[in-house]
């Protein structure tokens, strides 16, 4: 048990060290969302209501995209370079490896969420009624979902070109259906049904609950729980693609 914790944290430190050698990626992960929220605020200069409506869901979408990309590429590199195979010949277990990644990317997503939401809720003036810490909690849940999906994508890609194509393939349909463009209730019944089965719908619902006039803490926690359940599901599926024996 103690060894297991040591190995997971050693892995998290190693992943964070790799990111430290790549400050540009980390910088982009934080600066791009800030620029986009600022842009949105400028677009909606005279429509504060519309900014609240669109700016809040975006806070849940950034961690999904960022963590999806870093996870899928990091794991693809581990698979291609042979480091994954080497790790699996050591006492490090698969679940310890993935726990290490989850710790590292969870911290990264927390940093991103704290900075981006501080800007968006502060100077940009996005109005949330619910507790603003929940924005960060929801972002972490979404980041873990992004990690699970990225892990899955890394198993089905042979190159970095391929793996980035999984982002539009898995994330864009969810963005179209999650209620960002058209409220989910106003979509055709079939699409509404599909959107009910997609995790991002609950992430965006959660953000909407945070900005809605009536306080709805219970509903937000429910949304967070559902996103977390999807995250765990995708991580379990993704873990099954990390095989000790390959052909």
């Amino acid at each position: 048990m103690k060894g297991s914790v040591t190995r997971s944290f050693a892995t998290a430190r190693r992943v964070l060290r790799q990111l430290r050698h790549d400050p540009r990626t980390v910088g982009l992960m934080i600066i791009v969302p800030c620029v986009l929220e600022t842009l949105l605020r400028l677009i909606y200069t005279h429509r504060r209501q519309a900014f609240d409506q669109a700016g809040a869901p975006l806070l849940a979408i950034f961690p999904l995209m960022s963590v999806f990309l870093v996870t899928s590429i990091a794991l693809l590199r581990e698979r291609i370079s042979g480091t994954l195979e080497r790790l699996l010949t050591t006492p490090l277990g698969r679940h310890e490896l993935l726990a290490g990644y989850a710790i590292a990317f969870g911290l990264l997503a927390t940093a991103q969420a704290v900075i981006v939401s501080a800007l968006t809720l502060g100077p940009l003036g996005l109005r949330v009624r619910g507790p603003s810490e929940l924005v960060v909690v929801l972002a972490i849940a979404v980041a873990l979902l992004g990690m699970g999906l990225g892990l899955l994508a890394s198993a089905f890609a042979r190159s970095e070109f391929q793996v980035v194509q999984f982002l539009p393939a898995t994330v864009l349909p969810q963005l179209l259906l999650c209620g960002l463009l058209v409220a989910r209730q106003r979509m055709p019944a079939a699409l509404y049904g599909i959107s009910d089965a997609l995790p991002m719908s609950y992430a965006v619902d959660g953000m909407h609950h945070l900005t809605s006039k009536v306080s709805a803490d219970g509903a937000i926690l429910g949304d967070i729980a559902i996103v977390l359940a999807f995250a765990v599901g995708s991580l379990v599926l993704g873990a099954a693609t990390v095989k000790r024996r390959t052909s």
Partner: peptide, 22 residues
């Protein structure tokens, strides 16, 4: 194939594998 982390230093690579092997 070398199977090492290209984006880490030599020492960082060794430290990580030393940690997981104890």
């Amino acid at each position: 194939s070398s199977s090492v982390y290209e984006d880490l230093t030599v020492l960082e690579n060794l430290r990580y594998f030393a940690e997981i092997r104890g």
